[in-house]
Design a protein around this nucleic acid. Structure first.
Lengths: 193, 193
DNA sequence: TCCGTTATGCATCGTGTGATGCAAAACAAC
DNA sequence: GTTGTTTTGCATCACACGATGCATAACGGA
């Protein structure tokens, strides 16, 4: 009954996600979004209302994406699944996306003061997602104090993610592998007691 | 021989530090710096050249400040000193400055892509400072693999610092004490082996 | 007291930002 | 083809940012 859109909303969200991921929310300009998505600024605002609302949609999509991956890894809950997660980061050459910009949600924590409630909720839900999987995995193997230990593991993992930016920097040259490997070692040994 | 300044440079740096600390570099505007320091924008630019150079000076001052504190804590190097550091974060009510905005340097990591080399160097030096103290403390107590374990400890501590922003958020409600306490527990137990 | 030099206050610049106004275009329904 | 509705492209808005120009003020040295 009216003129249809000539772009796929999901494709646009994916392209916008890459841009927000690499440059953070504030540093991403509407012109960059135009270039990345191939959609004119008028189309973006018409479809999503505002830059902030677009970002919110991107976060939801990101959360769903990671959630699906976690569902796979934790299909059989247990410590082994947690090890798989950490192992992915302990590789000398971590996945491209991770190595480049860490985690979109973890990056967003930094700007929480300037974010509105919708974004705060999204980040909180994302952390609850991770914590839930970790705690369930620990509990499934009968490990005591599962909730608190899950807090530690999420904290350590997110901390490592945050410092990926340092590892990428030649001058800082933080040996990422060591950080994660020692985290796993510390966690594994803690579990033996 | 010429008109003297009517402000103390160190006082200005302290005031600017508080502002950068709370709002990050990019979100801090020159108008905010005027308000915080009580010095007109012309005075600031005349004294420091640019916003970025002022920030660099602030980082140097911050690094010196923390360095002095670490020298105190690590006056007698050893695991006990490391415990003291972590204990400061495990308090139900951590120090005001920490609870409010974490660590200025850790926050700056997020913006490293947009920072120039001088700032990158400052952050790298700051991490080397922490790592050096931690590694020396571990080595002093004859703990094996001191370098790698120091990486872990710095990573865990900085990760916790980054998530203080989440803990402050009522909706996220991350129990910060648990995160740090479990980190310490993991580390302590790892040390027993 | 005059001079040379630096600092200050105020207005303002150029630029980049997120967001809009508006007319033309593209479709579906009839 | 006509109408009604939505999208698109382009120009542009209002605003905040970092930074600057310039006249004036405040000092030390002679």
């Amino acid at each position: 009954m009216a003129r249809p859109r000539n772009f796929d909303e999901d494709k646009v969200l994916d392209a916008a996600m890459q841009t927000f991921w690499r440059h953070c929310y504030e540093a991403t300009t509407t012109r960059m979004l135009e270039d990345a998505t191939g959609v004119g600024i008028r189309g973006l605002f018409n479809a999503f209302g505002s830059k902030e609302h677009l970002f919110q949609k991107v976060l939801q999509r990101y959360c769903a994406m990671i959630s699906a991956q976690l569902d796979e890894v934790f299909a059989k809950p247990g410590v082994a699944a947690i090890d798989m997660v950490f192992a992915a980061f302990a590789q000398p050459e971590p996945p491209e996306a991770l190595a480049h910009a860490g985690c979109l949600m973890v990056n967003t924590i930094q700007d929480l003061d300037r974010a509105d409630d919708a974004i705060r909720n999204e980040v909180a839900a994302y952390r609850a997602l991770w914590h839930g999987h970790f705690a369930a995995a620990l509990a499934a193997d009968g490990i005591a104090d599962a909730e608190a230990r899950a807090e530690f593991l999420v904290g350590a993992l997110w901390g490592a993610l945050n410092q990926i930016k340092l590892a990428r920097d030649k001058r800082a040259a933080v040996p990422m592998t060591d950080v994660v490997r020692q985290t796993v070692a510390g966690w594994a040994r803690a579990e033996e007691l």
